Computed example of a mutant assay.
Amino acid sequence: MTRGMMTPVREAEQDRFTVETERFRRELLVHCYRMVGSAHDAEDLVQETYLRAWRSYAGFEGRASVRSWLYRIATNVCLTALERRGKRVLPSDLGGPHDGPDRPPVQVAPGEVSWLEPLPDRWVAPATDDPAEAVVARESLRLALVASLQHLPARQRAILILREVLAFSANETAAVLGTTTAAVKSGLQRARARLHELAPEPGELLEPADERARALLDGYIAAFERADAGMLERVLRTDATLEATPFREWYAGRVRCVHLLDEYVLGVPGDWRMIATTANGQPAAAVYHRRRAHGIVVLDATVTGVSRVVEFHDPSLVALFGFPDVLPVRTNLRG
């Protein structure tokens, strides 16, 4: 039913629904992203969440807070979606670094793997006034952690996010998932143990606003735009890793990374253009090849250089980050 076909009572109810629920849309979007590892999917799942919420709004009756009610719907929408497909991964989840013959990396056949996607920082709700909560929220979106979350069973993933990131109580989490408090506590223990095996130690990465992080990003961008392998050597750490979807191989060590890029990727000055941005609370850039959208690159910036480069070769992500599909001949655009 369109708004023009609604009765005045139903229109008033929709207005009230919008007022009560819209302020949670951005945090629900981030929640769905943590659950499924895809910005595109998260958009669709939030849309489904609000559709289901509107359909059941008349019977809601305030038995729980609006926020908890929406999270219950969103979490269960995500769990249903996760039943239909496998987890999203990065190339480094498929095996060890490439140590075979020197050749261009091999693309994975379309549909064979579901790839993790980056999240635009502009989608994230404004920072909380509590610095400790802001740190938890930011670190919970780091690319490496989101990748690790995808290896947890879906319900354990939901328990961990609800309890550790969103600070829901065990009782609230049990209500969201339709289970018992004991099951939540047990699931959280198992999720913590598994994540400890998978996730890197937090706290090493520089914030995107840090001058040192921006200098590293600017150096990486300049190296590509000038096709200068020497500049890449100065930006990357000796133990840097490089991976890119949809390629199966990934590379460890600055020497191997720079050789691969110099031999098969950099081309000539002007082939590549990049626009600085942020993703997953990290320095990032929208990537263009010969002025056409190519993908998004995300850097792990540390005090000693870039320790990890992940490039997502997916032109649709560039638009998702709010950038044009094609760049003009010359631009100083910065995001």
Rank of each mutant, 00 (worst) to 15 (best):
D228A: 03
L266N: 05
V297G: 12
E20Q: 05
S114I: 04
Q14D: 03
E311H: 05
F17W: 00
R212P: 09
A252K: 06
R226W: 04
L29Q: 06
T331Y: 12
V297W: 10
V108N: 03
L94W: 08
A240H: 14
A74I: 04
F224A: 05
L149R: 02
R330F: 12
E83C: 10
W272S: 04
N280W: 15
R142N: 02
T7N: 09
T245E: 15
A109N: 13
D41A: 14
L195V: 01
E197P: 05
R163T: 13
E249Y: 07
V309P: 10
T245P: 15
E139H: 10
G178H: 01
W54K: 06
A154L: 08
V298I: 13
V124S: 08
E249C: 06
S140I: 01
I161N: 02
H294Y: 08
V89C: 15
L116P: 03
D300Y: 09
P269S: 11
V136P: 00
E201I: 04
E263L: 10
E201M: 07
L166H: 09
E27I: 04
L261W: 07
R334K: 12
F247S: 12
N76D: 09
R23H: 07
A285D: 03
E20V: 00
N76R: 09
P120H: 14
E112T: 11
T181H: 03
F17Q: 00
T304V: 10
L260A: 11
T2L: 10
A137W: 00
E20G: 00
E22W: 07
W54F: 09
Q14W: 02
D129H: 15
I161S: 01
A213E: 14
G219P: 03
S68D: 14
R155V: 06
T179D: 01
L232T: 14
G59I: 13
R55N: 13
P104F: 08
G187S: 04
T241I: 13
T238H: 15
T179M: 00
F60A: 02
E27K: 04
L232W: 13
H289I: 04
V318F: 12
T80Y: 07
R103F: 04
W123R: 04
P91Q: 11
E48T: 15
A74P: 05
G203K: 05
